[in-house]
Design a protein around this nucleic acid. Sequence first.
DNA 1: TTGACAGGCAAGCACCCACTTGCGTATTTT
DNA 2: AAAATACGCAAGTGGGTGCTTGCCTGTCAA
Lengths: 94, 94
Amino acid sequence: MADVFRALDDETRRLILDELVARDGQTLFEICTVLTMRHGLGSTRQAISQHLAVLEGAGLVTTERRGRSKFHYFKSEPLAVISQRWLPARKDTP
Amino acid sequence: MADVFRALDDETRRLILDELVARDGQTLFEICTVLTMRHGLGSTRQAISQHLAVLEGAGLVTTERRGRSKFHYFKSEPLAVISQRWLPARKDTP
DNA sequence: TTGACAGGCAAGCACCCACTTGCGTATTTT
DNA sequence: AAAATACGCAAGTGGGTGCTTGCCTGTCAA
């Protein structure tokens, strides 16, 4: 729950989600390339790898390993929690 | 934009929003009292004050000063940005 | 097998953030 | 006027976070 908010509190991770939404199932190196090309990010591969681990820990990204490549897929389910925590008028106050 | 994500990346600030949703227009001292009573938070008044400043900077809270009291009101508009940034990925929505 | 490729693990560093502490300002009350 | 109330400002500190660096594991092609 708190992991989702923490995962979203980083511009690089938000850009990664943008890229996965634009093209799902990318590998780590593809994401690195696209981030440097289109957003001018000078981050190393390890930095992006750690960001992906945070996103996966928050449930916003799932991974699938095939051979020596690892594909990343965006999941939007955790975002629903954010939208529904404060938007509906909660009347269940004890 | 990034301020909204940062503001939400803190459990105390999320609890403050919960309290404002439950009862809007509370003062700083009321929020402090309610946080310690219902959530066992041992934070000082200044800590809560700084949290409210962050929430106000993100547009999630507006304030209104009357006399020596300052009332805080919850605003949900900035949350819409979060919900709509990564959701348009779906193509099967009419 | 050998080498290149894709990715993982772990320690260290620099920076930011939440929190405290102490003092100051404005407004009400007595 | 004096005290109490409600809040603001600013410097300092501790812990967490992003990033780098270096080395390692597993996979595929030549």
